[in-house]
Amino acid sequence: MKILVIEDNQDLLENILTYLKQGGYRCETASDYDAAFNKIMSFTYDIALIDLMIPGGSGLQILRELKSARPQTGTIIISAKNSLDDKVTGLEIGADDYLTKPFQLAELHARIKAVYRRNNLNGDDVVRINEIAIHTKKMETKVNETVVDLTPKEYDLLLYFSSNKNHVLSKQTIAEHLWGDYVGHLDNLDFVYQHIKNLRKKLIQAGANDYIESIYSIGYKFNVNRRSS
């Protein structure tokens, strides 16, 4: 998958690139309006990440140009402005998603995958992790053809793990993904543990390996190479 990252802050750019390259993506970058404009006009990308505030112009303008020139490119707006106006305008122009700084790289990755699935595979994708198959259109999970009965939150959690295989995800990150803005102000993250416990139990019962690894009881990792003893 080819991704264009339009972001003027070098450190943030480096974070995103490092994380995405680990996932095997081909990434290109643009750090101002002109560079971004040239890139979107010259090449085709699967996904473009657009920072709204870039030197030399507005990210919204880039979004407009991109949508008229290459409508098939998936777009995710990254903005530090948690302002409703920008969000509404961005989504009206045709951005596929909107992410507010500061975001988790794991979350960004999950969103990229979701947008890619929606745009390119018509939402009909089967995510496979060894013996586990997630049918995203039907929102159905199978382990070796056995259907696993997951709650919407558990399904979401599994999909999130699949997007960030082998990455360590802290409870905070998981909670923010599952609960969005609501969780930002909650002190007690025990409910994450509850969901992980249930998901793990259901997967093992259906015959899957125990992939979910607890990291010092602070975070979790979906380790695809892990074999249950």
Binding site: L12, N15, I16, T100, Q104, L105, A106
Partner: peptide, 24 residues
């Protein structure tokens, strides 16, 4: 107020990203 909020969020985003990379 808006710029201050914006300018603060970016360094926080960088720091958070670095921490995520650190956990790897």
């Amino acid at each position: 107020a808006e710029n201050a909020s914006h300018e603060l969020q970016t360094p926080v985003a960088i720091a958070k990203g670095k921490l995520e990379l650190l956990t790897e």
